[in-house]
Write a protein that binds this DNA or RNA. Sequence first.
DNA 1: CCCTGATTCGC
DNA 2: GCGAATCAGG
Length: 179
Amino acid sequence: MTEAVPSWTDERVELLRRLWDDGLSASQIALQIGGVSRNAVIGKVHRLGLSGRVKSMGAASQGRRREGLAAEVEMEVVVAEEPTLPEPPAIVAHRPAPDFPLPQKPAPEPVALAVSERVTIMDLRESMCRWPMGDPTSPDFRFCGGRAITGLPYCTQHAQIAYQPAAERKRDRRVAGFR
DNA sequence: CCCTGATTCGC
DNA sequence: GCGAATCAGG
């Protein structure tokens, strides 16, 4: 049952090429592809002769993490409870609720979008909404694919869901005269 | 110390 | 061919 992580299959290589071309760092790519270390990614990149793209490090490296921990790529390997194991073969699970029936903010408008531009991970680009739609383990799995807000991984609609303002305290005042 | 890619080299 | 270890650098 232990599906030895498929090494560099055509699909994985293709994905690697696309992500590298998109300017993602080796570590980011490694996380997204799953089952490989950033070194593996770099090694492959070199063997493929892809290195030396637009080296715009520095800005991207030191200033990372500004996107808010809520998002990142929703593909997160979750197989073991290990603190930080870098080689999780199993697959996906995502943070934000899938198609959800999230209470509270009912989004200002139904918005006639969505269904039309779903894309597979292969067609997902950096500028596209990475909101997961459907079962990640199903071949039908898609991402929203809408125009992502610059700097964020989601389109306006999904960003609202992903980044909900801190739940507003409704009623939780302690008994007066105490603290 | 965080991160980045580049290179080496045993497997 | 692969990738951990290492190197060089921001």
